[in-house]
Design a protein around this nucleic acid. Structure first.
Lengths: 339, 339
DNA sequence: ATAGTTACGGTTACCGATACCAATACCTGA
DNA sequence: TCAGGTATTGGTATCGGTAACCGTAACTAT
């Protein structure tokens, strides 16, 4: 096979200048309709594939939006990515994704690696970064969006919510449902700042309401189903048993629920149980789980819309940074039904 | 803020030629150790970030490996991506990810879009493509890997397994466990070729073993928890009831399991239940689910290793295409325990 | 001391599309 | 028919690195 044709080859074959071919491949450029069709037809016949590396260099536009998430393996973040992708797709913006495994040191490396690709904007999950990571973001010269959080000192734009407040709401709900002693299942502090914020929200509200509470922390984030089960085993062995157990995520809550099933403990009659994140399984479990819907898809979509406006729309990014507050929804369900 | 420094700025500041700076940023190039350190230090001070768009164009190496998966929101594919990413990370290869939503028409568009970025290789999930999609892959001039399948007529390399055979194994297991009539829960045919293959394997083996069987198909792929529950409701309403229900994935199986719980039907005593994919929840449910572990992470890791060898190692890609067979493991668990 | 070898840094010409500027074709109305 | 305008097309320099090649210094062996 000969080597891949380039624009000049198409131009020659079509009897036009390379410049005209270039324009034919841009949707908004002014080229005669017939000319464009002819060029695209010839390009298809010759198997030409547009080379965006060259385009990127000359136009100083990569069409990339870099995104870091803690983990691929999490339906919440996956939903955010979907929302983001879909909000930007028809503006010719493409997501360049990397994951940090819940480590801000990894995040720092990842940010640097991603910036080398010259993204037009960068979206990060969470508002805590290494010092150098933050500096990289600040100096990148492109719009920055922090998501899934409301940082005290944001780098740029923000699309998120207070994890602490959301968990506080959950505590209030359980209080109203009659619980007077609570337990919280979460991971160690390191890494998952959203998890840590949720725990803080739990503690603060439990104190404010003068509820008894205890914390069960197990392992590194992400706290998963197995850890949830282990933590619940520990809680069920304790005396007195708390009235309700709150979990850092639905996955942990589901693990906890199965442990109850294994021991013949009834949820919510013997103990109430709540999760966080509105994962699919929360609606399906028996009983279904009370949880917090953080509107993960919306976070992505709103972030995408914000960036599309600034990169391809009217707005310039010189203006003041925007803060888009997402209001998590408390989804009350069977697992915390009042006795 | 002044505009971003480039290599020549670093060169000037360090008193060396741009070429030396360029080499200092490549790990294997020959530059004096002290020179390199000085250059990197100055670069850091000036806030220089390497521009790979320019590098890509001149060196004709993007460092990208393009990957298409049906859905982000699936732990199996996420595991494959993790394996792939990790196998290639230290070779300087980065995953450029896109999802198809289980549509080969979307896949075609996505392939074209990804090829514009000049990836050094492309990895696709599944062995069925549109005609044009296949042609794009064939003419891309880069290594192609099809995964999660064993196509009859592969485009390039293959890292996968036979979904039909794996499901056949499951039928054999249930036969051995005493089941004589079976049901299969899956989606419609369109799109999810792996799902369709699993169903085919189910039917073929059930016939070979002279078992009674029926198929329950619900909705577009991916078949999820809710559909699993609906399908199980339909099955439980039928008379006579099958001895065992096999599902296209663990998620559907979990939905089915919860429906049994809701109705007070015991698994496996009243009906046996099996899933596919070895998702985390299969180990945690009560009872735990018999499933097939397709070794999703391995698929990614082996694909990554194969590509790293060809792109950064000894092997050239001129040689014959490789077929890496993955052997799925049947994980027998409580949900199909013999009565 | 000299040739031969290695290690390092420098010079130049690109990679392939597009910004920028200019030119030409085409159309409208007087 | 022609001026004046719009729509479409063309020529050229250039984006920021690096391949390919070259020159020189340092070191080794004889």
């Amino acid at each position: 096979m000969a080597k891949a044709p380039k624009m000049t080859d198409i131009a020659k074959a079509a009897g036009v200048s390379p410049m005209t071919v270039s324009r034919a491949f841009k949707s908004d450029a002014s080229v005669g309709k017939k000319t464009r069709e002819k060029i695209l037809k010839i390009a298809e016949e010759l198997g030409y594939v547009f080379d965006s590396t060259a385009s990127n260099l000359r136009s100083q536009k990569s069409g990339f939006v870099a995104v870091t998430i803690p983990s691929l393996n999490n339906a919440n973040f996956a939903d955010t990515i979907r929302g983001l992708t879909e909000a930007m797709r028809d503006k010719g913006l493409q997501v360049l994704l990397g994951y940090t495994d819940y480590s801000i040191e990894n995040e720092e490396r990842l940010i640097e690696q991603l910036l080398r690709r010259r993204p037009e904007a960068i979206v990060v999950t969470g508002g805590r970064h290494t010092e150098r990571g933050k500096r990289l973001l600040e100096n990148a010269g492109i719009p920055v969006v922090e998501t899934w959080d409301l940082p005290e000192d944001p780098v740029g734009h923000t699309v998120g919510f207070s994890n602490a407040d959301a968990m506080g709401q959950m505590v209030e709900h359980l209080h109203a449902a009659g619980a007077r002693s609570l337990a919280f299942i979460g991971g160690d502090d390191n890494g998952d700042t959203r998890g840590a914020d949720r725990r803080r929200g739990f503690v603060d509200k439990a104190r404010a309401l003068k509820l008894e509470y205890r914390l069960v922390s197990l392992g590194k984030p992400p706290v998963s189903m197995r850890e949830g089960a282990l933590a619940m085993a520990e809680i069920l062995a304790s005396d007195p048993r708390p009235d309700a157990v709150l979990c850092v995520s639905d996955l942990a809550a589901f693990g906890a629920l199965t442990e109850c099933q294994r021991r013949g403990i009834s949820v919510p009659d013997d103990i109430m149980l709540a999760g966080f994140g509105a994962f699919d399984l929360s609606e399906i479990t028996v009983p279904s789980l009370t949880t917090v819907d953080a509107h993960a898809y919306d976070i992505g979509e709103k972030t995408g819309a914000l960036l599309a406006d600034r990169l391809r729309g009217e707005l310039s990014d010189d203006a003041s940074p925007e803060i888009v507050r997402i209001s998590p929804t408390l989804k009350v369900s069977r697992s915390t039904a009042k006795r």
